[in-house]
């Protein structure tokens, strides 16, 4: 089975792009499934089901969805293999701009949208910097010039990535993205022994574990203080 990790800021168009791309993937007679990781709730699973795409959802609750992702991805891979998928796509929310679900030797996609502003590419961090493919959405609502400027900023941050423009509404560019998924030669039987491309932040303080009270005496574990002078 092929595996693709798709991440990007909230509302950048990940679900829309995956839906259109898997439609084109199905047209090739291939079978794909999706796993969606989020924090508190997601309606994406309903959208995938409506499109006839088998989906599993994982809600991380109080944990970072990306930490939760790594802890569960092997089980998800086995679920996908059991279902006989040719391709499994994971969608994750990328809430902190610091985590990235990308795994070495596994095709990594980052979705960003033209509306997010030209400084966004440099703010996003490892999920963009370490992606193999960067998909830029919502080109339909900005000018040609803004698309060019935005794409050049993406390229400056990640010069090695293939950059594709996909319209999440009309599906323009989705066939092309699906052909890149299809071209992916690496098959995954198990992720045991694979490595993340980038370490997750060590967020393990008392607040991660449910503390709500404010004050030094309640702060335990990995606590960092601002420098104020």
């Amino acid at each position: 089975m092929k595996l693709v990790t798709v991440c990007g800021p909230p509302s950048s168009g990940k679900t829309a792009v995956i839906l259109k791309t898997l439609e084109a993937f199905a047209d090739r007679g291939l079978k794909a499934g999706v796993v969606k990781f989020d924090c508190l709730s997601t309606e994406d699973d309903v959208l995938y089901e409506k499109a006839g795409i088998p989906v599993k959802k994982g809600l991380s609750g109080p944990l970072c969805p990306d930490h939760y992702f790594v802890s569960n991805v092997e089980e998800i891979v086995q679920w996908g293999r059991g279902k006989g998928f040719d391709l499994l796509v994971s969608e994750s929310a990328g809430l902190c701009n610091r985590c990235s679900p990308h795994i070495k030797e596994v095709l990594a996609v980052c979705v960003v949208d033209n509306l997010s502003g030209v400084t966004t590419p440099k703010k996003i961090g490892p999920m963009l910097k370490m992606a193999d493919i960067v998909v830029i959405t919502k080109g339909d609502i900005v000018s040609q010039a803004e698309r060019e400027v935005f794409a050049s900023r993406v390229a400056a941050v990640n010069p090695k990535a293939a950059v594709l423009h996909v319209n999440g509404l009309t599906g323009q560019g989705a066939f092309e993205l699906s052909s890149l998924f299809d071209d992916e030669e690496r098959e995954v039987e198990s992720l045991i022994g694979y490595q993340l491309r980038f370490t997750m932040p060590s967020a393990l303080c008392s607040y991660c574990l449910g503390e709500t009270r404010i004050g030094e005496s309640y702060q335990m574990g990995n606590v960092r203080k601002m420098k104020i002078d």
């Binding site: 080109g139 339909d140 060019e148 794409a151 293939a162």
Partner: peptide, 21 residues
């Protein structure tokens, strides 16, 4: 021509585009 952001073959002008910056 397929993947490079600096060598896009096609520029597109369409009806509903706006400036947002």
């Amino acid at each position: 021509w397929r993947f490079s952001p600096t060598h896009k073959l096609v520029a597109q002008l369409s009806q509903n585009m706006n400036f947002v910056m």
